[in-house]
Design a binder for these strands. Sequence first.
DNA 1: ATAATGAATGAATGTCATTCATTTTAGTAC
DNA 2: GTACTAAAATGAATGACATTCATTCATTAT
Lengths: 192, 192
Amino acid sequence: MTETDPRKDRILAAARDHFAAHGFEKTRLADVAKAADVAVGTIYLRYPGKAELLAGVLGEIEDRFAAAMDTPAIWALPWPERFQAVFRANLDLALSDPDLASLMGLAPFAMGVWRPGDRIRPMIVRHIMAGQASGALRPGFDPQIVAAIAYGMVEGALGELSVNPTAGPDQYLAQLTEAAQGWLLSRGAHAP
Amino acid sequence: MTETDPRKDRILAAARDHFAAHGFEKTRLADVAKAADVAVGTIYLRYPGKAELLAGVLGEIEDRFAAAMDTPAIWALPWPERFQAVFRANLDLALSDPDLASLMGLAPFAMGVWRPGDRIRPMIVRHIMAGQASGALRPGFDPQIVAAIAYGMVEGALGELSVNPTAGPDQYLAQLTEAAQGWLLSRGAHAP
DNA sequence: ATAATGAATGAATGTCATTCATTTTAGTAC
DNA sequence: GTACTAAAATGAATGACATTCATTCATTAT
């Protein structure tokens, strides 16, 4: 029952390469088609347009980020450490492939067809709610709002990190963790 | 010595209107020209291209946000309150004109010609550094990194707020303030 | 006046995304 | 195998703009 469509796979892969290499506006669908060994029209049999094609690429990437936060290992972690693990998972993935960051930066070109964070934020919400239920995280905060702000924090960190490599990723990781703990941990014992 | 160029002003105003109303891709330079009572070519005498025209619009807007954080009243505030005042200034401005939010969302179309936050982040950095110098804020944190993350927080909040009006702005303001205080305030007396 | 300089103009150009009439492929029946 | 059909693939033609640039117009200097 699992769909298999080699042409679609080739198109998506070619699109990923071209979008990463040239950005949205400068990638020509004709080139993507050629790279995928397919005619231009064939792309339109799979995706309604260029923006949706980009959305397809971005969706795959967001799934990878969401998955990185959803491992048994992370869910098993107690709360003070879980923050760091979640943030690290994001930073590691982003740094593991420079394309990912530049690709995610193209999100707005898919505006109206794709909402950035739609796969990632629900994942954050799940973690928050679990933490609140266990009593480890401060209760009463709206998980949706917390997730939106937390998502923004990571975005901000990744954006700056990709531009200002003066400070290493560890600095960003430390700040993110620090911020989340000071903000969200139930008032009790933290590490100094 | 102050430059005056009525045509440029009209072009910028018309561009702001059209970008806000139709987004980047759907605004036709021909229409902007008509609204500004100017010929298309005249736009190119002022701005190298469509993207730079958008950058001009965005620059003006960012200046307004930066200015909102830079009032004597805010600089006079002691630290626990200053967080809230700064965040409120941003939310208020964003909410005061729905165009601002949608316009800022177009930032990526000016990619390569304009870096979002370039006017706002330095302003945040100044506040952070002042706070650290006074001892009110925890020392040792790199103000650049802090600013990037804080900027992301606000972006995240504004983005969600514009989409999910279920919770009022106050909820977002409260969370932002809470997060910043827990993260950045020197360990001493806070309000409970 | 007249010429010289620079700004303004908008028709012409070139570059794609998107469409769609035509061709190719794959499946089914005989 | 042959004939027929439906679905998929193709790529040339179309249309929409951004951008360019040869002309026209306005200002200032002589």
